[in-house]
């Protein structure tokens, strides 16, 4: 069953285009793959001559919610809904932290950049984490 009530085709498509534009600018202007787990993980610990670009990029990312709420029409911003308990958020955070570093990428690095540059390695990674995501939600929502 498709959940038409929550379907947001235009906002999601335009947001996706912005994500694509940012990835395009990052590789063409700065010669870097826009992969969040890699950008962040490269700061743990920071290395000489390799930290500044990561930090300036992340500061821009951190500014996004403030810029978005300043630009968006009043009432547009919806409060995010989070169902997971704090314990589950911690378990999930640990898994995402270890998994993205061990598998060398997340939704942005493998999913957007990797698929865009037609990498088979990233296609397999993306397929794998999507299937793991589908299976996990299926278990939580429909079995447990």
């Amino acid at each position: 069953m498709i959940d038409w009530a929550h379907f947001t085709p235009w906002a999601s498509l335009s947001g996706g285009v912005l994500i694509g534009v940012a990835s395009a600018l990052f590789i063409l202007l700065h010669g870097r793959i826009l992969g969040i787990s890699g950008i962040l993980g490269g700061l743990l610990p920071p290395k000489a001559n390799d930290a500044t670009w990561r930090i300036t990029f992340l500061l821009g990312l951190f500014a996004a919610p403030f810029v978005f709420s300043a630009l968006a029409p009043a009432g547009y911003m919806q409060m995010p809904r989070i169902d997971a308990s704090y314990t589950m958020l911690i378990v999930a955070g640990l898994m995402v932290g270890i998994g993205t570093r061990y598998g060398s990428g997340c939704t942005s690095g493998h999913g957007v950049c990797g698929l865009s540059r037609l990498s088979l390695r990233s296609l397999i990674a993306t397929g794998t984490f999507m299937v793991a995501g589908f299976a996990t939600v299926y278990m939580i929502r429909h079995i447990l």
Partner: peptide
């Protein structure tokens, strides 16, 4: 690659956050 992606995908499914949106 496979084990990392499996772990990541499961964590993503539990919380609904991947690294960028979480930040």
């Amino acid at each position: 690659l496979i084990i990392g992606a499996l772990l990541f995908g499961a964590g993503w499914g539990i919380a609904g956050y991947c690294p960028g949106p979480a930040l």
